[in-house]
Design a protein around this nucleic acid. Sequence first.
DNA 1: ATGACTGCAAAGACTTTGCATCTTT
DNA 2: AAAGATGCAAAGTCTTTGCAGTCAT
Lengths: 136, 136
Amino acid sequence: MEQTVKQFRKRNAILSCLRCTHVHPSAEDLHRMLQAEHPDISLATVYRNLSLFKRQGLIRSLGAVDGIERFDADTSPHVHFICTGCGRVLDLPQLTPPQSLEAEAEGCSGCRITGCQLTFTGVCLSCQQQNQEELT
Amino acid sequence: MEQTVKQFRKRNAILSCLRCTHVHPSAEDLHRMLQAEHPDISLATVYRNLSLFKRQGLIRSLGAVDGIERFDADTSPHVHFICTGCGRVLDLPQLTPPQSLEAEAEGCSGCRITGCQLTFTGVCLSCQQQNQEELT
DNA sequence: ATGACTGCAAAGACTTTGCATCTTT
DNA sequence: AAAGATGCAAAGTCTTTGCAGTCAT
């Protein structure tokens, strides 16, 4: 039966869409991407479900880039790079986050630590090239 | 002469205020703190100067905590902890950020890296205690 | 039929901007 | 007098919420 497929059609679509992309989209990015399959999807639904997924721990927020929240369906610990030129967010899977510091952090602060986020900022390759061209 | 002191009275006050606190305040926090000395200071002035300082590299933004941008006058590399309960931001000066990863990150991504931010999240001591009491 | 999800539009919250005024040099 | 900083209020963005309608069980 197709009920099992249909059940929460849009909710599932939002999560799938986020899981299939590596661009760490904003709510509006997702809304735009989803419109191909779901022309009538509302931006409010995207926001509502993203915030639900976040509460459920299904997805993770990277915080805001240029004032706009960005999301990631990959909840495993990994390192990010944010381009200050274009706002692009990249994964750096080659690097391992310093989880060894976690215990140390708990020890010195007394805080119970539940998460760790390592983010590099700088200029991505394509922005470097663009800057180069502009100087010409 | 007192001109040198007065020169940009409020601008200086904003920067001094941020430099003298360790709470990583928001624009509105700063505005509130500054009102003792400058009852007529406008929130717009705080925002304007914070964004100027940021451009000048005099201060640093930690990104948004619960949707509100937080600032830090300490631009040296150091580790932060953000409490998911109360939004408090603490420095963890005992830990050293993994700057060794920076070169590695440049190597594997081709990006020019200019900054690095390591942030732990969790529950601070005072929120842990409060949770404890609520269970009683 | 009931409970859950969604679209739409309105409301909310934080931040930025335009303009007249006031300061500093 | 000229350049720059500030206050005030309005505008701008991103996000959340209320409510009626729709969908799934």
